[in-house]
């Protein structure tokens, strides 16, 4: 893994056990995240896309140990997160934060804004006394709210304003790394743009590293430096944003991109319609999990799971027959 990585994940797994009936213990589990390895570089935004249920949010929550991973390693800033005890993990939480999808359920309705944000300082014993209020007011200004909002309650704000409060809370401890989990999906389109621009400008000013989780390709394209595409708990393609959108290597990525409506007249781009629903993560298909829906499948796809392998510098896909990349990269050696 590269030396400038802030966060490195190796073989991360999160399986949710499925409870059997009484006397009929079931050993089944939903493999929400099933062996994800990737690294996030300092200062970059890594986008994570995929359909609902592909495990992208679970992955994000595992990174912060809001969900306890079943296996694998998470190395953040040189420390193996999964070996930390509770107090050490609590200290480390200052460096990694999360912005949630739903601005309505992510703020405690019984606490005023000042307490919601100020709790970050209280927990870590920072900025005691009057300095705390000043610090919270600074944060409110930073995210485009007014210091007078300090004493108000969440129900007095609009969705976009609430999301700003959530962002201020995430920024309070001066983190290095933020997981934005569908951070704009619940907002109106016009508000989405404001929040996205706020996130981008904060990244520049504060040198933040983001993992940006979304099902919205347009949004991911706008903010990400690199994009990881997830399907059924695994990364199927990982590439720089421009390259991925120009030439997808995995058939699933290709199908996703073809589904994005493009405002062009005349040139009706050919749309790849995927047959069927995403398979159940309870019983994923044999071999490549995508094979039942893949237009290019061969026999080997049903037998062997393709590993995520490098196709070119900085490009990787998990496919036995990746779509040929530009400039005659000898992609498939089959």
């Amino acid at each position: 893994m590269s030396a400038d990585a802030l966060l490195t994940i190796e073989g991360l797994k999160k399986h949710f056990p499925v409870r059997g009936r009484l006397f009929n213990r079931s050993n089944d589990s939903v493999k929400a995240v099933d062996g994800v390895s990737l690294s996030v570089r300092k200062g970059e935004t890594l986008g994570l896309v995929g359909e609902s249920g592909c495990g992208k949010s679970t992955l994000g929550r595992c990174l912060l140990r809001l969900e306890e991973p079943t296996g694998g390693r998470i190395v953040f800033d040189g420390q193996d997160l999964l070996t930390l005890d509770k107090p050490a993990m609590r200290r480390l939480r200052r460096d990694m934060q999360i912005i949630f999808q739903d601005p309505y359920s992510s703020l405690n309705p019984r606490k005023a804004v000042g307490a919601i944000i100020g709790d970050a300082f209280r927990v870590h014993g920072l900025h005691k006394g009057a300095g705390r209020r000043r610090k919270v007011e600074e944060l409110l200004s930073l995210v485009g709210l007014r210091p007078e909002h300090y004493d108000r309650f969440p129900h007095e704000f609009s969705g976009g304003q609430r999301q700003r409060i959530g962002i201020a809370r995430a920024l309070a401890l001066d983190p290095k790394f933020i997981v934005a989990d569908e951070a704009v999906s619940a907002l109106d389109v016009s508000i989405q743009a404001q929040i996205l621009n706020l996130l981008v400008s904060l990244q520049r000013r504060l040198g933040l590293t983001y993992i940006f989780i979304s099902h919205n390709l347009g949004v991911v394209r706008h903010v990400s430096d690199r994009v990881g595409v997830m399907y059924l708990g695994r990364i199927v393609e990982l590439a720089p944003t421009a390259a991925l959108f120009a030439r997808p290597a995995h058939p699933y990525t290709e199908a996703l991109l073809s589904a994005v409506p493009r405002p062009s007249v005349g040139t009706a781009s050919k749309r790849i319609i995927l047959a069927g629903d995403p398979p159940s993560p309870l019983r994923p298909p044999s071999g490549c999990a995508f094979h039942p829906r893949c237009p290019h499948r061969q026999d080997i796809c049903m037998r062997e799971t393709p590993p995520l392998k490098d196709l070119a510098p900085d490009r990787a896909a998990a496919c036995h027959f990746p779509l040929t990349l530009a400039a005659a990269t000898p992609a498939a050696t089959h």
């Binding site: 929550r61 912060l64 809001l66 609590r90 200290r91 939480r93 200052r94 990694m96 934060q97 999360i98 949630f100 999808q101 739903d102 359920s105 992510s106 703020l107 405690n108 309705p109 019984r110 606490k111 709790d119 970050a120 927990v123 870590h124 959530g166 809370r169 309070a172 401890l173």
Partner: peptide, 26 residues
């Protein structure tokens, strides 16, 4: 399961604080 509880946990709040300050009042 509500997100504000996760948010407080992500800030580093202890179980006791999460129970007494975040969940109980609601």
């Amino acid at each position: 399961k509500r997100e504000f509880v996760d948010a407080a946990r992500a800030l580093g709040m202890s179980d006791f604080d999460l129970i007494v300050r975040e969940i109980l009042p609601n």
